[in-house]
């Protein structure tokens, strides 16, 4: 562990000040499941960890059937799958929350932390993208909101400026005709970084796709919103052919690298497979079918 201090602000204003003062060496500490590992490995200069979990807004869950859901950026995954409103209205959030790490990791890891870590393979980000999530950011120059699909700018990089941090993430209210699903592929059944992941959300008018979003991860420098996949579906009936066209669009959009976790060929192929599977299951959820997440959730 590199030499550092932990500070524990209790207000957003205090946190902004501490982050701003700390400059590049200051990092917010939410669940710590990435940033503590990074600090321990001494791969980046971190000299202040700003523990944001004492700030009430950072761990709040607010649900309103009209305006939707806002989750504090540092809300741990277990709070999400322990929350009946989230479970009932946003099953794709539960998909992501139950797939991240082991149970012990889920006791700490958060959607905000996962987003700000900005890994191409972050297992909550495609879900946040297809659910039209918006990151609510606070900083020295005031507040701003950024759609999640525009948040990450490269591996480990994002739009946050000095002194800025994500306070919460908001999602619009779900549509009665809608459904969403997140899946990832890993070599084991738990605990790995995604070789490829994907989320799909659809809104249906009978058999016709009224609206769709598809996002794939671990196949580009940032998680991608695949416009071509949505284009292949919207206004058309949901058939094997249209789903296959969307899957092909994901495969075309994927520009993966070869690394120890997966090959280019494997990742491009999986982006199509997971797009197809998430679309099929999102549609079944849209039609009211109960498709469980993992682990009995």
């Amino acid at each position: 562990m590199q030499a550092l201090k932990v500070v524990r602000p209790t207000t957003i204003a205090e946190a902004i000040e501490q982050l701003n003062e700390g400059g590049d060496g200051a990092r917010p500490l939410a669940g710590g499941t990435d940033v503590i590992v990074i600090a321990r490995a001494r791969v980046r200069d971190i000299d202040v960890l700003v523990d944001v979990k004492q700030i009430p807004e950072l761990t709040a869950i607010e649900w309103d059937p009209d305006s939707g859901l806002t989750i504090g950026a540092a809300t741990p995954c277990y709070e999400l799958y322990g929350n009946a409103d989230v479970v009932q209205n946003y099953p794709a959030i539960i998909d992501s929350a139950t797939l991240i790490g082991g149970t012990g990791i889920q006791g700490r890891a958060s959607f905000g932390g996962n987003l700000c870590n900005s890994s191409p393979s972050g297992d909550t980000i495609p879900t946040q993208i297809v659910l039209e999530g918006v990151a609510n950011i606070a900083g020295p120059n005031g507040e701003r909101s950024v759609p999640v699909e525009d948040f990450c700018t490269g591996p480990g990089r994002n739009v946050l400026g000095q002194g800025e941090f994500v306070v919460s993430i908001s999602f619009p209210a779900p549509d009665a005709s809608g459904g969403a699903r997140f899946l990832r592929f890993i070599p084991r059944n738990e605990m790995d970084i995604a070789v490829c992941n994907a989320a799909s959300a659809v809104k249906l008018d009978g058999d016709t796709v009224r609206w769709a979003r598809v996002s794939i991860g671990a196949v580009a420098p940032t998680p991608l919103l695949v416009q071509g996949a949505a284009d292949a579906l919207v206004g058309k009936p949901l058939t094997d052919e249209t789903i296959e066209a969307a899957a092909e669009a994901s495969k075309d959009a994927a520009t993966p690298i070869d690394d120890m976790r997966g090959s280019i060929k494997q990742r491009k192929h999986l982006s199509a497979v997971l797009t197809r599977r998430t679309l099929q299951q999102a549609a079944r959820r849209a039609r009211g079918e109960d498709i469980p997440s993992v682990g009995g959730h």
């Binding site: 503590i36 149970t103 006791g107």
Partner: peptide, 18 residues
């Protein structure tokens, strides 16, 4: 693994200050 406020966590990923 330890329980922190009743919740399962990995104690290697919790700062003592927290």
């Amino acid at each position: 693994s330890v329980l922190m406020d009743g919740r399962l966590v990995n104690s290697c990923l919790v700062m003592a200050a927290e």
